[in-house]
Design a protein around this nucleic acid. Structure first.
Lengths: 204, 204
DNA sequence: CAACGGTTGTACCAAATGGTACAGATACGA
DNA sequence: TCGTATCTGTACCATTTGGTACAACCGTTG
């Protein structure tokens, strides 16, 4: 009924289903019946199973970019940027989609042609805007990029941890620690401020 | 011919094959013929496809622990620990296994019973020994754990980046930056001192 | 030799898969 | 009203899947 009719709605519910149940072992028929349609319709709209997968991945990627755009990293200090991004990206509501991200990523690494589009900009799309905001904080281009790349890696690594363990507190503590490092307060041993004992102790 | 005969050898080559080609869409018959056997033999030795998967994951996990044990993080300073671990874990020779890791991880997140064993200790097994070594550097228990957890996340996040982009230099720079942060050189805004020069310059 | 347990090949199975052919719907403009 | 283009349901297809039944092979031990 919308301009593109049922296709778009079908695709969106497909993403939800696949995020919840995994894309791996599901057959067209399973997916279709969960979506309230027949596998015939999926073939009609998407041509093949792989065609469906491609669209799912594309939509997923687009959503990632959208949610990235919504993050205003304009002029906040780096630590605040990290903290805010983390709060956003670690929202339990997004977990199904992040699980899907990791699953499709795994597939893409093995060359699944339906999944590989996800790899385009999987890093740069996140690093580029972050790097810009880092530069505003006095880092040179290269250092800004490295710092941004590191930040993205921290977020993804901690997300992997969080999805596997569910240990929200432990993971948040690690992120706090990273923020402290970035803010330059860090290195040390005291619990409350996540690292008072600075560097100077190291060398003597 | 080894104590368990062909089974163990079969399993080991199965891991290699699966690491190279992905575990996702491969059928028993494909795997078998690549291993120079018949699918009948795989069923005989492992009971079912899932049985084979379970063993593959188990072996994979065991190897991870072994390679972890080989890392001597005894008394090196934290930055050096990070650098050494990274050099080890980012070795291109290991990439197939790391791809496999991510793929199986994706599966485990969606509840695949053959993959879930991988989740046990996926974080703690790495964090625990690292935390011990951190404590030796004057961090309290909680901070040491958080720092170790962060380190593991950085490694995994950068690995994800590296496997997707292949941009060795960029990823290494980000890791260098992390090392610099950990060593306390980085502070807030000073550009040139921040991720440039490694440790040796640290103290003087 | 015979008997035996561990191993392997051949042939087979029911079930499920992705995909297609074709006949109806349904809507809409001429 | 017809014609036409977009949909959708039914029935079907060849192929592949994981798994099994059964007989044969092999080395050892008796």
């Amino acid at each position: 009924m919308t301009e593109e009719g049922g296709r778009q709605r079908l695709l969106e519910t497909a993403v939800e289903y696949v995020a919840a149940h995994g894309v791996g072992e599901r057959s067209l028929r399973q997916i279709a019946s969960a979506l309230g349609t027949s596998h015939r319709m999926l073939i009609y709209h998407f041509g093949s199973k792989e065609g469906l997968l491609v669209e799912v991945v594309r939509l997923m990627e687009q959503r990632q970019r959208d949610s990235l755009a919504e993050l205003e990293v304009d002029d906040a200090p780096p630590g605040e940027v990290a903290r805010r991004s983390w709060a956003r990206v670690s929202d339990p509501q997004l977990w199904p989609y992040e699980r899907l991200f990791f699953e499709v990523y795994g597939r893409a690494l093995h060359g699944d042609p339906a999944a590989t589009p996800l790899l385009d900009g999987i890093v740069d799309a996140w690093v580029d805007p972050l790097a810009v905001s880092m530069q505003r904080w006095g880092l040179t281009g290269d250092d800004a990029r490295a710092q941004a790349r590191l930040g993205v890696a921290v977020a993804r690594g901690l997300l992997l941890d969080l999805l596997a363990t569910g240990d929200r507190a432990g993971v948040d503590a690690a992120m706090e620690r990273f923020v402290a490092l970035v803010e330059g307060l860090a290195a040390g041993g005291d619990a409350d401020s996540a690292g008072r004992r600075p560097v100077e102790h190291r060398c003597e």
